[in-house]
Amino acid sequence: MERLEFRFAGRPGTPVAETGEALVGVVGSGNLEVMIERVDLGGGCLAVVDTSIHGFGDTWQQVLADFVDRRGLANIRLSINDGGATPAVVVLRLDQAWAGLEEGER
């Protein structure tokens, strides 16, 4: 297993809107689970990835940075358990997690 941690600036100074969480996906071969939580990170974002495939830190960095940027996230913690998902699958799960978080808050 390899643990990777990434911090993103997000939108500094954004107040914490509310608390909430969503869990999507199931860990398996080529699949992953993503838990997304609203926590006070001073407007920033944090991603913790536990993956069974070593050596793909740069790819994770790019996929996660793109997600945080594209969605304009702030005060979001992403926790990921990965069984070797491809970047395309990861992107889909991240978007699904965000949709799940918003749905739960409606």
Partner: peptide
């Protein structure tokens, strides 16, 4: 599971 190098599930 982590001691065997396997991913866990949050639930």
């Amino acid at each position: 599971l982590p001691t065997l190098g396997m991913p866990v599930a949050f639930d």
